[in-house]
Amino acid sequence: MSEKEKLALLEDMFELEEGDLSADTVLDDLEEWDSMSKLSLIVLMNDEFGKKLSGDEIKKFNTVGDILAYMG
C-alpha cells in the first residue's frame, strides 16, 4: 500500500478531509486523537495490516509518520 493510500485510510478513520494529514502531523495536536480513535486504529491495524497493536504501544506514537512506519 502506498503512503498516500495509508494516509487516506487514516483520514477516513479520523473523519478528516483528504490532505489534512501528513507524516509530520503531531498526533497530540489533533483534536480527533482520542481514546475512541486509538481503538479504531487498533482495529484498522488488525484488519488492514494483520498487526496486533496494544494500548501501550500506541503511547509510543508521536506523529502520523510513526503510524505509517508501523503499518510497514
Binding site: 481514546s35 481503538l39 487498533i42 496494544s54 494500548g55 501501550d56 503511547k59
Partner: peptide, 9 residues
C-alpha cells in the same frame, strides 16, 4: 481487553 485499551482501560 486490558491489553488493547492500555491505561484508559
Amino acid at each position: 481487553y486490558l491489553k488493547m485499551g492500555g491505561d484508559d482501560a
